[in-house]
């Protein structure tokens, strides 16, 4: 069997540190398979006139049972927090197991 090419579109991986919870991927996803939970935190910096509001990502879920691998989320992400990886082998014994959260999506690794 030949090697899987490195640019193969097997899964969509997440770089949570790059995600700003802007919701663009969630809004553009044609079959609504991405769910984001986030909250805002106020960050006070010395010297700043008022505290900054920063979005903090609480959960990021892709439901592979719904995903049709169109890649629109990867295209629209302004911060490259989503990228394709060749890994394609991630079955689950039930539908719930196909819902991958931040930890699992980061495990797919860098692009």
């Amino acid at each position: 069997m030949s090697e899987i090419p490195h640019q193969a579109r097997g899964a969509i991986a997440l770089d949570a540190a790059a995600c700003t919870s802007c919701m663009l991927c969630v809004k553009e996803c044609p079959d609504w398979c991405i769910h984001i939970e986030s909250h805002n935190e106020e960050v006070s910096e010395p010297g700043a006139r008022r505290p900054r509001s920063v979005a903090v990502l609480d959960s990021f879920t892709i439901d592979w049972g719904l995903c049709m691998y169109c890649g629109i989320c990867v295209e629209v992400c302004p911060f490259d927090a989503l990228h394709w990886v060749p890994e394609h082998d991630y079955p689950a014994p039930d539908a719930q197991g196909l819902r991958h959260g931040i930890a699992r999506l980061e495990e797919f690794g860098p692009s």
Binding site: M23, V26, K27, C29, W32, H35, I36, S38
Partner: peptide, 12 residues
Amino acid sequence: ARVDTPWPGARR
């Protein structure tokens, strides 16, 4: 299914 499902993009 689509009528029943709230749009996830409506959050926030």
